[in-house]
Design a protein around this nucleic acid. Sequence first.
DNA 1: AGCCAGGGACTCC
DNA 2: GGAGTCCATGGC
Length: 278
Amino acid sequence: MKIIKQKNKIIVEDENFNIRKILECGQIFSFKELSPQSFLVVSTNKFAKVNIISNTKTEITTKYVDYFLSFFDLNTDYKLINKKIIAACKDFEKYVKGELRILRQDPFQTIISFIVSANNNIKRIKKILFEISHKYGTYIEEYGEYAFPSLKQLLPVTEEEFGAVGCGYRKNYLVKAIKMLNTEEFCVQNLTKLDSFSLKQKLMELPGVGPKVADCILLFGFSRTDFFPVDTWIRKSFAMFSNEKKTDKQISQYFVNIFKDVSGYAQQYLYDYMINNT
DNA sequence: AGCCAGGGACTCC
DNA sequence: GGAGTCCATGGC
């Protein structure tokens, strides 16, 4: 992978960097397809426009070059990760296509997004989060779009207001979780210091955050890749690997035992396969 | 019309 | 710890 860093632009030259796949595999909901070759990605109050130039060339235009270099995980060797996945389980060879990168997203945005995601579908999750951004986020004139709201901006939002944008029964989870996130105990700086086990315990203290949502937050918001989130799709897929009847926790454990530190990547490939091929 | 969605909280055992 | 049940809403 060749990465050219310019003042307001990152040029990625690699046939395996598939921005559509990266954005549409359910790890991020705050992005917009401007055209078949162009996407607008929103992370906190930062924006990046991603243009597909050719099969082997993608351009990321942004004022925050270093931020999005990390966001798109461009310093990680995915060839090595893919190799590790297949070495751990040969069955995954057919799921590993290209490089399905795990984005390094903002923790707060990820927590709010995945509380909304529970027992919900991707189209509606995107819609709800866009409405929340439009109502409570800052308008960024340059892009004609709204930033994802900050903790301070969401703090005064009431249950009724979250209900009005379609959050359903998750509305009171959001209000309570946001209040907790505004405490010293839950400030991102302190959370980041915790080891993976303690961080998961901590996240699960938040209302609306159970084992699966916590795993997604750990993976997408804290770059802890030794987790394997189990949702309805992964649960359905488990029949391809075993006839045993297992709980979600057991399924997650089963895969983490196999994939260890590359569990999160393996999970994304399997999830992507399931939502697109079944 | 009815099932399903990147599940969690609560209760009962 | 595991099994049931309820939960809002809208996509399909």
